[in-house]
Amino acid sequence: AEKTGIVNVSSSLNVREGASTSSKVIGSLSGNTKVTIVGEEGAFYKIEYKGSHGYVAKEYIKDIKDE
């Protein structure tokens, strides 16, 4: 049951290796980017990222929809 969301930041949002603010940053997404959410862990969504997965803070994702 995948969902999509939109990155809701003015600059960019860090994509992390794990569901923690201390996890390594593996990339970033600019505002209004559409993401595919494959799961959630605590305050983070697990998303599809560059052929693999990454984690982003839930508070910066809006317009969550079921695909």
Rank of each mutant, 00 (worst) to 15 (best):
46 K>Q: 08
26 I>Y: 02
38 V>S: 05
63 D>M: 14
31 G>K: 15
54 G>H: 02
44 F>E: 01
2 E>G: 13
25 V>H: 04
21 T>F: 14
17 E>W: 08
24 K>F: 05
54 G>R: 02
7 V>R: 02
12 S>A: 10
8 N>L: 07
20 S>M: 06
7 V>F: 01
51 G>W: 07
67 E>N: 11
38 V>M: 08
1 A>P: 12
19 A>C: 04
43 A>L: 14
6 I>M: 07
41 E>M: 11
67 E>H: 15
34 K>A: 07
4 T>M: 08
19 A>N: 04
25 V>D: 03
3 K>I: 11
27 G>K: 01
3 K>G: 05
35 V>G: 00
64 I>A: 08
36 T>A: 08
40 E>C: 06
6 I>N: 05
9 V>W: 03
4 T>H: 11
59 E>M: 14
12 S>K: 10
39 G>H: 04
9 V>D: 07
64 I>H: 07
31 G>T: 14
13 L>R: 02
66 D>C: 06
37 I>Q: 00
2 E>I: 15
22 S>C: 07
33 T>M: 13
59 E>G: 07
30 S>P: 14
23 S>C: 06
23 S>M: 05
60 Y>S: 09
57 A>P: 14
10 S>T: 13
43 A>H: 11
47 I>G: 00
35 V>C: 04
44 F>V: 02
10 S>P: 09
52 S>V: 12
14 N>Y: 11
8 N>E: 09
53 H>P: 05
47 I>T: 01
14 N>S: 15
48 E>Y: 12
8 N>P: 04
33 T>D: 09
29 L>R: 01
42 G>C: 05
18 G>R: 12
50 K>A: 13
14 N>I: 13
42 G>W: 04
18 G>C: 09
12 S>H: 14
19 A>S: 10
36 T>H: 12
53 H>C: 05
50 K>M: 15
32 N>F: 10
2 E>W: 05
37 I>V: 05
60 Y>T: 05
6 I>H: 06
57 A>E: 15
41 E>T: 09
14 N>P: 14
50 K>L: 12
53 H>K: 06
35 V>P: 01
63 D>C: 07
67 E>G: 12
19 A>T: 07
23 S>K: 04
24 K>W: 04
15 V>I: 08
57 A>F: 14
5 G>A: 05
46 K>A: 06
27 G>V: 02
16 R>G: 03
18 G>W: 12
19 A>P: 09
9 V>I: 12
53 H>M: 09
20 S>Y: 12
33 T>S: 11
6 I>W: 08
10 S>E: 13
47 I>Y: 00
1 A>I: 15
66 D>E: 13
34 K>M: 09
15 V>Y: 02
52 S>Y: 10
61 I>R: 01
55 Y>R: 00
23 S>I: 01
4 T>L: 09
46 K>E: 10
19 A>Q: 03
16 R>L: 15
32 N>P: 05
67 E>V: 13
53 H>I: 12
54 G>K: 02
24 K>Y: 04
38 V>G: 02
66 D>V: 08
16 R>W: 15
27 G>M: 04
63 D>G: 10
67 E>Q: 14
18 G>I: 08
12 S>C: 08
39 G>V: 03
23 S>D: 07
8 N>C: 08
30 S>Q: 14
66 D>Y: 07
46 K>M: 10
18 G>E: 13
45 Y>G: 00
37 I>H: 00
26 I>S: 02
47 I>E: 00
7 V>S: 04
62 K>N: 10
26 I>N: 02
5 G>R: 04
22 S>E: 15
